[in-house]
Design a protein around this nucleic acid. Sequence first.
DNA 1: CCTAATATTGGGAACGCTCCCAGATGTTTT
DNA 2: AAAACATCTGGGAGCGTTCCCAATATTAGG
Lengths: 337, 337
Amino acid sequence: MKKHQVTIIDIAKELNLSKSTVSRVLTGHANVSIKTREAVLELAEKLDYQKNMLAIGLISKKTNTIGIIVPEFSSSYFPQIVIAAQEVATQAGYNTVFSQSNETYETEVANTKVMLANQVDGILISITRETRNYDHLKVFERKGIPIVFFNRVCDEMKVPKVIVDDFEGAFNAVDYLIKSGRKRIAHLAGPASLKISANRLEGYKSALRKNNMVIDEELIISYNLEVSKVKIYINHLLSLENPPDAIFAVNDPTAIEAIQIIKKKGLRIPEDIAIIGFSNDYASDLIAPSLTTVAQPISEIGSTAAQLLIEQINRDVSDWKAVTKVLKTELIIRNSS
Amino acid sequence: MKKHQVTIIDIAKELNLSKSTVSRVLTGHANVSIKTREAVLELAEKLDYQKNMLAIGLISKKTNTIGIIVPEFSSSYFPQIVIAAQEVATQAGYNTVFSQSNETYETEVANTKVMLANQVDGILISITRETRNYDHLKVFERKGIPIVFFNRVCDEMKVPKVIVDDFEGAFNAVDYLIKSGRKRIAHLAGPASLKISANRLEGYKSALRKNNMVIDEELIISYNLEVSKVKIYINHLLSLENPPDAIFAVNDPTAIEAIQIIKKKGLRIPEDIAIIGFSNDYASDLIAPSLTTVAQPISEIGSTAAQLLIEQINRDVSDWKAVTKVLKTELIIRNSS
DNA sequence: CCTAATATTGGGAACGCTCCCAGATGTTTT
DNA sequence: AAAACATCTGGGAGCGTTCCCAATATTAGG
């Protein structure tokens, strides 16, 4: 069915050498006569020889591959992180394999199994909004394969993590809304299972408290991040007896969806209602009105995570470090507030 | 350094069985007593056993992995294609490895080598704007590894391809501009090396010709798709003695950049100048004014390409097919025209 | 020209697995 | 009760490499 692939044995036979010698040339080891070296190299080139990394990985127990698992790929957030991570990995001589968990626990588990089976040297992961059980991730620790979390982390595992200061970011956003005169600020929050949602919610509450404003639970809506649901919540909020004059959304896709819905309703942004998002996605500067948002150093998250992972890979299991890097956010004020 | 990974031999030893029997259980082969089967399964679970796909791939000469190489990942275009392709692949039991060539020929060549070395069962590729030499791709054919092109294809290779009707899409866009009264339509074209650029340019010219308008070479600017360069060309076009009243851009990122630049100059869109893009990227509906664009069935490109690749993988080399699927575009009229 | 180095090459185990071929044990048939 | 199966298990080769160690070839020193 498949064509025969050329191996070092083919080269060895054709040149009347042993596979050892051919291997020596191809791996750049010393102690091979120039004649032989050149002959081998030439023939290898001629035959389109490519080393078989499966065999090499099998022997060396190292594949120079890192896995990246992200919950979704539809906003620009995760793709940007992946790009940055991949760049660092490539630089360090690692290949990357990545997969989406589609925000589904089962898929995430399946993905980790695949990565394990394919002998990745380490993984980078941002968990799904559903993930409550971490056994599939703890396996990596047990097997001595480094794991680094970013963005959505697992609290109970003592491994490197890269996050942003969600609390502070949210605090600053809400504090700014208050300072600019908003009286009733709603929060479209993410699921409580995610630490980032919880932290942003805390930041929101804290800013209200600090400014002596009441925390109206009616104005806090926690949802599962499915953008299609935003419409329901916006309708609900606007139909309240005492509707909000500002909305702080847990992320940019949510905020952007909100803007579109609110515009369609004929309300003015920011006059009637102000909106702030979180992350500074690519689209947030394009939409009209442009979105005020808490910017994350997205690329830095990816590159830092990859960096930490590679360092961990190069360390012996016995002295693994478990640093948590907390990156700063920055409030970017645009026209939606 | 690395912890010992549990193998079927570990399981065999612990249960006083041979590795053959353990293997038989794990691969689901018949002829194993229920007692043995259960014991093996239980122990495997307990020890977090994971099959080593390197070893299996080495034996079976199949990795159930397909590679995807795209030129860039910064607009939403390629990510969406990759998502769709990955979905089909996953469905069919294939893993995906992907990498960006960063629009650089050397990187593309390096990427193909890595994929070859990692024994992918097939690849999906959209070439860089620089790629003129196709030797690195022809190797796949020689080795009997299927290759499928999408979007940016290689004319001289007789393999499956998935493209959209760029000519027609461009024609319709320009024809529509003319019908709506535009007299001087500029074209921000892509590099001539890419078939898609050439086809879109042809569609543009053809629409002018059909409507008895002159083709003014001054209004045709071919550039390398680096969005940062757009400013120069817009400035140039607007400073012409007889500036254009419409711009047809080769893709959406270009059109979106143009909109921002033109807005900043204080010109009104579409009153002073109309803009049309190509692809219907995610952002094109968000920007103000929203972008009129030639929509491509993006997901369909990815899924079709993956489909074709998998079919090819399942065929014997001797009866490889080389179909070219041409998908239809659709002009989406929004506010920029 | 012979010995001792040194330079170059070959042989073979090992990596973890699958799969074919044989044994070993048990069961049914006449 | 012997012959003929069926069921289950073990042994071993092989996938393409690397790497250690031994073998051979080449060269230098005396």
